[in-house]
């Protein structure tokens, strides 16, 4: 447990020292501040300001996650620092878990910074504290947690570019499953059964998307919130488990 904590702390420190992170964060701040300009175009419709802001946090969060997550194991192997860590009494499982928690903490910090600006912009425009918006950002954070686990899983056996491509494909397909299922329902038969199978097996990332509900003041129920949290934790755990297996088998 102590090893995980130490690795996580170092991964976190390394991540927040990365200049790319500040570049993306700078862009995110600029984007969120343009929401003030967008508010003028929205003719007083706060839902537009919220949609625009929450989308910005999500996109910047995904970009940060990809930049930090895809190369986290690869960099350690390339710079040979991993050999030094492995020579210590540390298991490979602890390395993967430490990397996961460290990266997730760095991404959570980045998203928290963006959330603070977002809440400031919405507070200024709507004179309200956007509690539902904050919940939507929390759900986005769940998705980022899943995405970090996915990137670590692919990074455990593939190069950063390949891991990014695989993860991005799953990210897009994860948001498409409901649409594909709707279309398959119109075809029916074996197609529908196959798609239904894929629907339950593949990660359904639309579960984490409550941005629309938040923008239009619609509260989600407790069972939905809890099921989404359980889904994120279960799927991330599964991916980390496979990441550990792959990383253990990897010859260094």
């Amino acid at each position: 447990m102590n090893s995980i904590w130490v690795i996580a702390k170092n991964t976190f420190k390394e991540a927040i020292r990365d200049r790319i992170l500040y570049g993306i964060l700078g862009f995110a701040v600029f984007y969120l501040l343009t929401d003030l300009f967008f508010a003028r175009l929205a003719l007083g419709d706060v839902s537009m300001v919220k949609s625009f802001g929450l989308a910005g946090i999500y996109v910047c969060g995904v970009v940060v996650t990809v930049f930090l997550g895809a190369s986290v194991l690869y960099k350690e192997i390339e710079s040979r620092t991993l050999y030094f860590v492995i020579s210590k009494p540390v298991t490979r499982a602890e390395i993967v878990l430490g990397k996961f928690f460290g990266l997730f903490a760095a991404i959570a910090l980045t998203i928290s910074a963006m959330a603070a600006i977002y809440l400031g912009v919405v507070g200024y425009e709507a004179r309200e504290f956007d509690m539902l918006g904050l919940l939507a950002i929390l759900f986005e954070l769940f998705e980022m947690g899943f995405f970090v686990a996915l990137l670590l899983f692919f990074s455990s056996f593939a190069s950063p570019l390949t891991a990014t491509i695989y993860s991005s494909i799953l990210l897009f397909s994860g948001h498409l499953l409901e649409l594909v299922l709707e279309n398959a329902a119109q075809i029916g038969g074996i197609t529908l059964r196959l798609v239904s199978g894929a629907y339950y097996i593949l990660p359904n990332l639309e579960k984490f998307n409550i941005r629309g509900l938040a923008a239009h003041h619609t509260m989600i129920s407790w069972p939905v919130g809890i099921s989404v949290f359980v889904y994120a934790v279960a799927y991330s755990t599964l991916l980390l488990y496979f990441a550990i297996i792959c990383f253990k088998r990897r010859e260094l």
């Binding site: 967008f38 537009m48 949609s51 999500y58 498409l176 629309g212």
Partner: peptide, 21 residues
């Protein structure tokens, strides 16, 4: 519509807001 939904990563509301403006 389906083309937009495929590529907008579930950001339908933001896309709708921008197109509407």
């Amino acid at each position: 519509l389906s083309f937009i939904k495929v590529f907008d990563l579930g950001l339908h509301e933001a896309v709708a807001a921008i197109r509407w403006v």
